Measured scan of single mutants.
Amino acid sequence: ENVVSAPMPGKVLRVLVRVGDRVRVGQGLLVLEAMKMENEIPSPRDGVVKRILVKEGEIVDTGQPLIELG
């Protein structure tokens, strides 16, 4: 699984990683606000951040690609 998608609609509050960062399974990639709750979106696997597909403040839909892992 190379693309991390939004599990719910919401607003991207914070991106916690940068392109080139090594991440571990379960590590927070970004914080999504949904229904006034902050939800940290975890990495599904170990890898390297290849691309960040959203910006802070952006509104996303369920299933929208957020981050690509390499």
Rank of each mutant, 00 (worst) to 15 (best):
E1V: 15
E1A: 15
E1S: 15
N2I: 12
N2W: 06
N2H: 03
N2K: 11
V3T: 00
V4S: 01
V4W: 13
A6E: 02
A6V: 03
A6R: 09
A6W: 01
A6S: 13
P7G: 11
M8S: 03
M8F: 13
M8H: 06
G10H: 01
G10Y: 01
G10K: 11
G10R: 13
V12L: 03
V12Y: 13
L13A: 03
R14L: 02
V15N: 13
V15W: 11
V17T: 07
R18H: 10
V19Q: 12
G20P: 04
G20R: 02
D21L: 08
R22A: 03
R22Q: 11
V23N: 06
V23E: 01
V23F: 05
V23Q: 10
R24T: 01
V25D: 12
G26L: 08
Q27V: 13
Q27Y: 12
G28T: 03
G28L: 03
G28D: 08
G28N: 13
V31F: 11
V31K: 07
L32C: 15
E33A: 07
A34D: 09
M35L: 10
M35K: 13
K36L: 08
K36F: 08
K36H: 03
E38H: 01
E38N: 11
E38P: 08
E38R: 04
N39H: 06
N39F: 12
E40Q: 03
E40N: 00
I41R: 07
P42R: 06
P42W: 00
P42C: 14
S43H: 09
S43N: 00
P44Y: 06
P44T: 01
P44W: 09
R45Y: 00
G47A: 08
G47D: 05
G47H: 14
G47Q: 03
V48W: 09
V48A: 05
V49W: 15
V49S: 11
K50E: 12
R51M: 05
R51E: 07
I52A: 03
I52C: 14
L53W: 04
L53G: 00
V54P: 00
V54T: 06
K55W: 05
E56Q: 12
E56C: 14
G57N: 02
E58T: 09
V60N: 09
V60E: 14
V60S: 12
V60I: 04
D61N: 11
T62H: 08
T62M: 09
T62D: 07
G63L: 07
G63A: 07
P65N: 01
L66E: 15
L66N: 02
I67T: 04
I67R: 15
L69I: 12
G70C: 14
